[in-house]
Design a protein around this nucleic acid. Structure first.
Length: 572
RNA sequence: GCGGAGUUGGUCUAGCCUGGUUAGGAUGUCAGCCCCCCAAGCUGAAGGUCGCGGGUUCAAAUCCCGCACUCCGCACCA
């Protein structure tokens, strides 16, 4: 065949553009890398993918869903650690123009680097003459910040710096207090968010696989670290997962381990029950999208490549024709990193409390502050000192006094007589803690693409998208066998009836019947209803199956219910 | 960012080296004819500032320069 050299991915990209699933955006300005637009079919497929996800991940668990801002001020991403880890000093070799992480280079030469080192200082340090370009050996560098978050400003006079969110998760963390309140203290608490995220990638090739603006579906599952059990685990513990754990990844092994959830947990391959639960759900969801299980795997992230917040991460990867193994979802155990960070930064208590079944007696250190003594010694600073002391933990204060015989507050040395420490014991009915978080996070465009690629097939040189019926953008097409003798009128009536019953149906009477079947197959319409001369006699129509081309005859009256039955997604 | 290749109606492409009349074809789309089941046929129509900008020339899709984008490698991908 002529088109032998063309890959499936190429043909699919062409089909997606031609029929209006999606295409590179801003074509009239030459196109801008990393941005795509979706047409009607793409919008519908995306929408149905989201609906299915909601069913799998939100509704069946009674999780809640939120929609938070896309733009947040600098401080949010400073707290979350993104400013630190998304904003890397890049050193460019002035001779060969290769770029490297400046901090990594300096580290190789055992040079002092500090956390908040400025660009100027870093540049000075790296240009002292001994740091050689690994590529060409040159020693002259220019250092610039490389920031993979989109920066913007907030306010009419650009009063404050802001960022487009690089993940939807932070909105859930910043709003956690109120969400928890609204959820009436539920724990574990699942909070989902679906929306756009932005990453200013260096070179976003690979079409829809790597975008600068993309859509995510995320859940933050909050749980009590002392009660990390997932009550739903028994539903999935015998399921098998195809896993590449850290040790295999380190050895460069590509063949995944096939292991039951139960075993993976007991062997510590998966560290958290909720993480395991969501991994199974993720697998089932991908199967539901039409991605076979043997084209899926869970790939452990090594500590060095893991995100700054993660204690364990598995990438859910699917095998694609041209791009190889591609991450469609990330499953991360984020511990209490995010809430703790926001708590520190905002000075707002984000811990929650649970009633203990039985009150317990706890010993703790109490700090009795001798206000009189402080007032006598530092009358001017009294209020400030008291405020700071109250913020201090008694343990820290005691340690300082034990070590140095005094305590520094507001630059003043308080004598140890100012504070008295008492061991107390009291009855506690509640326990406070910062919830831990497990996060399954999905990239919608990648899922949509993977769905399309696995649905793509050819028959007699024509393209057929075998999209599962419950996902198909157009669910039914109504055709008059020929465009005459009242067949059109009858067809339009059937079409309108289907639409009124909530079925995504189209009508087409242009060209031969074969051509119309082909057009419908190409965009994955699972069922084609044909009105022929027999219809005019007995009110029956034929329904043609996209995948088998088999036809069945039934009455117009039974058609809608029959179709709805075929379109329903049965649970896994 | 670097190196290489490329960008021509909706889609796929010929033409470019060797500058020269209305940029050719296939397919698709639309209208009409025909048509009782899988891209059939016939007739007709619409659709292109040849990626963008500049230069050379009497004349540029074609030669030169810059930029954007795409693909393949390298680097980057929290």
């Amino acid at each position: 065949m002529e088109s032998k050299r063309e890959s499936k991915a190429d043909k699919l990209a062409e089909l997606a553009r031609r029929r209006g699933f999606f295409w590179q955006a801003l074509e009239i300005y030459g196109g801008v890398g990393g941005f795509v637009s979706f047409g009607e079919l793409g919008v519908k497929l995306k929408d149905k993918t989201i609906r299915l996800w909601r069913d799998y991940f939100i509704h069946r668990h009674n999780f809640t869903e939120v929609d938070t801002p896309l733009i947040s001020p600098y401080v949010v991403f400073e707290a979350s650690g993104h400013v630190g880890s998304f904003k890397d000093p890049m050193a460019e070799c002035l001779k060969c123009h290769k770029k490297f992480r400046a901090d990594h280079l300096l580290m190789e030469y055992n040079r002092q680097i500090s956390e908040g080192m400025s660009i100027e200082d870093t540049e000075k340090e790296i240009n002292k003459g001994d740091v050689k370009c690994p590529e060409c050996g040159n020693t002259k560098w220019s250092v610039r910040h490389f920031l993979t978050m989109f920066e913007t400003t907030i306010g009419p006079y650009s009063e404050s710096e802001g960022f487009m969110r690089p993940e939807t998760a932070q909105g859930i963390f910043t709003e956690f207090k109120r969400i928890y309140e609204i959820s009436r203290g539920k724990m574990p608490l699942g909070v989902a968010q679906i929306g756009k995220a932005f990453r200013n990638e260096i070179s976003p090739r690979q079409g829809v696989i790597r975008l600068r603006e993309f859509s995510m579906m995320e859940i933050e599952l909050f749980f009590d670290p002392l009660n990390p059990k997932c009550p739903l685990l028994n539903q999935v513990e015998n399921e098998e997962l195809r896993i590449l754990p850290e040790d295999l990844v380190e050895k460069g092994i590509e063949e995944p381990l096939i292991i039951s959830v139960k075993d993976a947990l007991s062997k510590g391959i998966i560290k958290q029950e909720w993480l395991a639960y969501f991994m199974v759900l993720s697998k089932k969801f991908a199967i539901k999208l039409g991605i076979p299980e043997d084209k899926q795997r869970f790939h452990a992230k090594l500590p060095s490549e893991r995100a700054h917040y993660s204690a364990q991460t598995y990438d859910h990867e699917v095998l694609l024709d041209k791009f190889g193994w591609v991450e469609v979802a990330g499953h991360a155990y984020r511990t209490d990193y995010d809430l703790s960070s926001h708590m520190k930064k905002s000075a707002v208590d984000l811990s929650i409390s649970v009633q203990l079944e039985e009150p317990i007696r706890v010993k703790h250190l109490k700090m009795n502050i001798n206000a009189k003594k402080i007032g006598e010694n530092f009358p001017d600073k009294f209020n400030d000192i008291m405020k700071r002391l109250k913020e201090m933990s008694p343990e820290d204060a005691k340690r300082e006094i034990d070590n140095s015989g005094a305590i520094m507050v507001e630059g003043l040395k308080l004598p140890k007589e100012a504070i008295e420490f008492v061991d107390t014991e009291e009855e506690v009915k509640v326990r406070r803690f910062i919830p831990h978080v497990v996060e399954p996070s999905f990239g919608i465009e990648r899922l949509v693409y993977a769905t399309l690629e696995h649905a793509y097939s050819e028959k007699e040189d024509r393209a057929i998208l075998k999209i599962p019926p419950y996902l198909a953008p157009i669910q039914a097409a109504v055709f008059p066998l020929v465009s005459k003798d009242k067949l059109q009128e009858k067809s339009i009536a059937v079409w309108e009836d289907l639409r009124r019953k909530g079925i995504d149906a189209i009508y087409d009477d242009s060209g031969s019947i074969g051509r119309r079947y082909a057009r419908a197959d190409e965009i994955g319409v699972p069922f084609a209803i044909t009105i022929d001369y027999q219809t005019l006699d007995d009110d029956t129509v034929t329904i043609r199956d996209r995948d088998t081309w088999k036809q069945k005859r039934l009455t117009i009256k039974d058609l809608p219910d029959h179709l709805l039955g075929l379109l329903r997604s049965s649970d896994p």
